[in-house]
Design a protein around this nucleic acid. Structure first.
Lengths: 361, 361
DNA sequence: CTGAAAGCGCTAACAC
DNA sequence: GTGTTAGCGCTTTCAG
């Protein structure tokens, strides 16, 4: 360590200075910093990790999708980690990856991380023993598939959000609500489905058959063609906004106007949701809050291995009401067929500039 | 090293086995692996990095946005890195971050990386000396702000794509093309603007004033209100799809039908582009190809520090034609005002299921 | 407040 | 094919 020589102190003192440890005189600290500056010194992270046994980095497992939800969650994590002093190591799992999430966790453990974040876990048939592999704490974001001692979960209360959406539609006067579900391998999709189903059950409403998509607008469109065939259908709760958009297009092509003939509620509040036609009523997810709080709890568990994990707090539920929802159309007189083919539906200006919307709850 | 003992070999031999080095007899290799298995052994990455001087990891600087383009690029990088044996260290720069990209690069260098990827650089007023800081190679994705010895650039040929979009509109018969630009701090936005402007100039067309947004549908909407006021405007090239969607909504509210009255071309081909109304004609970016090729070149530069960098290849330009573009409306008779207020524009079914579209070039 | 010694777990360079 | 000897640059532990 050249810096030590130049500053005329011991190696350890240099270490103290660069680690902001106490018990270094201001004078010595200044001298060391100066010497370091002059030599363009930067600490060697590998050596530090080797000697201390702590890597000061957190591994992140992402599902390799372009989906807004997972991407937003990851970005929330990236944003949140800056305040913690930890670095991020990211590994990507493609859906259909043979080794799955477990493989990704393994590779992270190989690289050396103090904690792990798993974003939007899916049931890939490998899981279950995630936390058994290393003894680092694991934070599962998006939905809690399991909870072993060192596993934390930070959900977004998907079931509660699904309930809110469904009840809103019911309150509008709809007899029942259809559900355009996400792929059931995703825990997040399961939660939304479950929240919808149980709400309907609690209100004693009929539970229509579920249509499942893969989160894409494309499958939403396909599902929409199917749903459009059902004349009794007046309201749909879609598991995400992309599918809702595909769905709305299919409905429009089938001559079913949104929201006059059928109401649609999406999920996520993607940035364009306010600008599609009609502007989408949707459940906004508090990705940032969830990521931030989750990371805080993870760091706590890393730094206090023996303390009990911090409790999770329920994030707020936020229904953004725009123009894709309305009361159901008046009951059809029996025997009448589908209504007119196309919809003149004049375009109404947005209530307020920039995607204004009223917020419910 | 306990594994060495259990297998009855030297430490170095264990090292050889785990590094897949040659010159180890099959028998010994088997014994070592077995011993390792039994002890649940995994190599210590920090020690390895310390001893070898190579971290086997690549740092990634991202701009902390939820934008589709940057996000897709990062995912391409994540996907591409799996085949290289390198790990990813990610650090996030928020726009408006005081330390900027340079700060992010610094922190990566502190953590120890063998190479750096900068995705979608912006001109944050700090830049310029990126590669002077460490001696690791740097890959700049999205647009090349500078090129020092060890800096590679993997552009997406934004200017060429802008040219293609603009010429397509011109060929449709439009007198000229307006441009809804991205924030000019982004090099990518500048390239698109430049490509558009030079194309117009090359064809001797008038160059309308540029309207600038911030990539969001919301600013696209605002810009749309402005543009709608210009009666002569019949075609707009938007710097991304989100803005195009906001723009289209504003036009519709102003009674200007797309594509009958004005044609709109977007940029990116976001997943919902095929399902909005009308389905969006847009320039598709080959994010995956760009990321993959860029990473390959970066790894080459890491592993062959003295060899000249691999040459970049131009990615293909891909115009996806959907329903937001058409020939201009017949010339207005002088003196006639704006046309009717609202647009009945019946919804036409998609040409093919799942966002079918014809591809141009 | 500061320093000396030991060693984290691996790989480099060279022997055998 | 395999082993030996040195460190990599830091932190730890224990003395002052």
């Amino acid at each position: 360590m050249d810096v030590a020589q130049l500053a005329g102190v011991s190696q350890k003192t240099v270490s103290r200075v660069y680690n902001d440890e106490p018990y270094v005189s201001a004078e010595v600290r200044r001298r060391v910093l100066e010497a370091g500056e002059e030599l363009g010194y930067r600490m060697n992270n590998a050596a530090r990790a080797l000697a201390s046994g702590r890597t000061r980095s957190i591994g992140v497992v992402t599902l390799g999708t372009a989906l807004y939800g997972p991407a937003s969650l990851i970005m929330g994590v990236e944003r949140a980690v800056r305040d913690t002093g930890y670095a991020l190591r990211v590994v990507n799992t493609l859906e259909g990856d043979p080794t799955g999430v477990a493989g990704a966790v393994d590779s992270l453990l190989d690289q050396g991380v103090d904690g792990i974040v798993i974003s939007e876990p899916i049931d890939d048939g490998h899981g279950e023993d995630l936390s058994a592999r290393g003894d680092v704490p694991v934070l599962v974001l998006g939905a809690p598939p399991l909870s072993t001692p060192r596993t934390l979960a930070a959900g977004v209360g998907a079931d509660l959000m699904a309930r809110t959406a469904t009840e809103y539609l019911l309150e509008l006067g709809h007899e029942t609500v259809h559900h355009l579900a996400g792929p059931q391998r995703w825990y997040a999709a399961r939660d939304r489905l479950e929240g919808w189903r149980s709400t309907l059950a609690a209100h004693g409403r009929a539970i229509p058959p579920v249509v499942e998509g893969d989160w894409s607008a494309s499958t939403g469109y396909t599902a929409g063609r199917e749903l459009a065939a059902d004349d009794g259908m007046t309201a749909v709760f879609a598991a995400n906004d992309d599918m809702a958009i595909g769905l709305i297009r299919a409905l429009a092509e089938a001559g079913r106007r949104v929201p006059e003939d059928v109401s649609v509620v999406g999920f996520d509040d993607i940035p364009v949701a306010a600008y599609v036609t009609p502007p989408l009523t949707t459940m906004r997810q508090p990705f940032d809050t969830v990521a931030q709080e989750g990371l805080k709890r993870l760091v706590h568990s890393i730094e206090n291995p023996d303390a009990p994990p911090l409790p999770a707090s329920e994030p707020p539920v936020d229904l953004v009401v725009r123009a894709s929802t309305a009361p159901p159309p008046p009951r059809k007189t029996p025997g009448s067929g589908r209504s007119a083919v196309s919809s003149p539906s004049g375009v109404r200006p947005l209530p307020a500039l920039g995607g204004g919307a009223s917020t419910y709850d």
